[in-house]
Amino acid sequence: KLPPGWEKRMSRSSGRVYYFNHITNASQWERPSGNSSSG
């Protein structure tokens, strides 16, 4: 399961899957890690 705020999306241009955070408006190709504590 993804960390809070993150969701899986697909890029229309490349067709690749990326991850988008609707809370911080951040996007990245790598899967966000939800196990590590923020610090």
Rank of each mutant, 00 (worst) to 15 (best):
G5D: 04
L2E: 15
N35E: 13
R12L: 14
S38V: 12
S27F: 15
M10G: 03
N35K: 11
T24H: 03
S38Y: 08
S33I: 12
W6Q: 01
W6N: 00
W29H: 05
F20K: 03
S13A: 12
R31L: 09
Y19W: 06
S33W: 10
N21L: 03
Y18V: 02
R12N: 09
N35A: 12
P32E: 01
S27C: 15
H22A: 10
W29G: 02
M10N: 06
M10F: 15
G34K: 09
K8V: 15
N21M: 02
T24P: 01
G34V: 13
S11R: 05
L2T: 03
Y18E: 01
F20S: 01
G15I: 02
E7P: 01
K8N: 01
V17Q: 05
R31V: 10
T24S: 06
H22P: 07
S38R: 08
R16P: 01
S33A: 10
R16L: 07
A26P: 00
S13D: 09
A26L: 13
G5H: 08
F20P: 00
S37K: 09
G39N: 11
G5M: 04
W29D: 04
G15P: 02
A26E: 14
S14L: 09
Q28Y: 04
S11D: 15
K1M: 11
S37W: 10
R16M: 06
V17T: 09
R12P: 14
S33R: 09
F20I: 05
R12W: 08
N35P: 14
S33L: 12
Q28A: 04
N35I: 13
E7I: 11
R12D: 08
W6S: 00
G34A: 14
S33H: 09
G34F: 14
E30G: 06
W6M: 00
S27N: 04
G34M: 14
S13T: 13
V17D: 03
R12Y: 10
S13R: 15
S38I: 12
P4M: 09
S36H: 10
A26T: 14
R12F: 08
K8S: 07
Q28V: 04
K8D: 02
R16E: 05
G5W: 05
S38H: 10
P32F: 02
H22Y: 15
E30I: 06
E30T: 08
S14C: 13
M10P: 03
R12A: 14
I23W: 08
Y18C: 08
L2N: 01
S36L: 12
M10T: 14
H22S: 12
P4Q: 07
S33Y: 10
E7D: 04
Y18F: 09
S36F: 10
H22V: 15
N35Y: 09
R16T: 05
K1I: 14
T24K: 03
G39V: 11
Y18D: 00
S13C: 15
G34E: 14
E7V: 13
S27G: 05
G15D: 04
R16Q: 07
N25S: 08
S11Q: 12
W6I: 00
L2Q: 02
S36P: 12
S27V: 15
A26N: 08
W6V: 01
S38L: 11
F20H: 07
G39D: 11
S27P: 03
S27E: 05
